[in-house]
Nucleic acid binder design. Structure first.
Length: 271
DNA sequence: AATCCCACCTGAACGC
DNA sequence: TGCGTTCAGGTGGGAT
């Protein structure tokens, strides 16, 4: 379930265990993720120090002495901090052993995630070059959004999930933010007034911020780096609530398909 | 450049 | 109980 809040919660959770630690060993159990895990990591990483751990979009960045380890969790990935003696299970594909005696373990049943190495400036990486601004930064504001989508004919929901427009928003939080902004997910992006863009920007920021504070959402098996479940799922207003009454007006929540993804919204509250 | 839609993969839930 | 179908947090890439 990794959208921005889950990746951010993971980032904050693993940071203290990794920062200023030296890597002692790398284990690649199954290299076939979205792209192969570079086999060179086995010799490249040991003895390097992890200086900082950051997040950009839905990517986790482990900044090391000689480059950056890029981790994406895909649809089903998660990271745990564990003693190196913990037996590995099916779907545990990758481990970073640390000089503390602990390890970072990557698990990803569907293998849509990625683990890559980059030794230049991260913004020069092909995957990072065209990314939009961080939704919680000042760069994501009313003027930016209005200008960016004024010529887009796709729906506002699809635009919100476009990482070239703004990063970090996936299916859950796109649905939730549109509900809080009172905007129909079917509205054409280029039809949104400045006022509605302002409402949407505000809704995106508060929705994501609250989800981070709740420790993220926990659909299926997502947990934080210590195995704890997030609580934000209990706060959903529309996601997954089709045929249930709207928490605001009581009308039944509607479910449709948009761009091969499920959309949930209230016909009454979202116009 | 924007848009559409497929592909990648496993597992859970559901219907028959 | 078993089998087939559908759906799930993401996103690069090819065709239009």
């Amino acid at each position: 379930m990794p959208e921005l809040p889950e990746v951010e919660v993971t980032c904050r959770g693993i940071s203290a265990y990794l920062t200023n630690r030296h890597i002692t060993q790398v284990i690649i159990r199954n290299a076939s993720l979205r792209w192969p895990i570079p086999s060179t990591l086995t010799t490249l990483l040991p003895d390097q120090c992890i200086t900082t751990v950051t997040r950009r979009a839905k990517y986790l960045l482990l900044h090391c002495d000689q480059g950056t380890l890029i981790i994406h969790l895909g649809m089903s990935g998660s990271l745990r901090i564990l003693p190196t003696t913990t037996p590995s299970l099916l779907h545990d594909h990758f481990e970073l052993w640390l000089d503390s005696g602990k390890m970072l373990r990557y698990r990803d049943p569907r293998r849509f995630g990625a683990i890559l190495w980059w030794d230049g400036a991260i913004q020069q990486h092909p995957l990072f070059q065209r990314l939009g601004p961080e939704p919680l930064s000042d760069a994501f504001n009313t003027r930016y959004l209005h200008t960016k989508i004024h010529d887009r004919r796709v729906s506002i929901k699809e635009a919100l999930m476009n990482q070239h427009i703004v990063v970090g928003i996936g299916n859950i939080y796109a649905n939730e933010a549109l509900f809080h902004a009172g905007i129909s997910p079917l509205s054409a992006a280029n039809s949104l007034s400045q006022t509605r863009c302002a409402a949407l920007v505000k809704a995106v920021k508060t929705t994501l911020q609250q989800a981070i504070e709740a420790g993220g959402s926990s659909l299926r098996d997502f947990t934080d780096c210590n195995g704890r479940a997030g609580c934000f799922q209990q706060q959903y207003w529309v996601y997954g609530r089709h045929d249930q009454p709207c928490r605001q007006c009581g009308a039944l929540i509607n479910k449709i398909r948009q761009g091969q993804r499920s959309t949930f919204y209230c016909l009454q509250c979202q116009q």
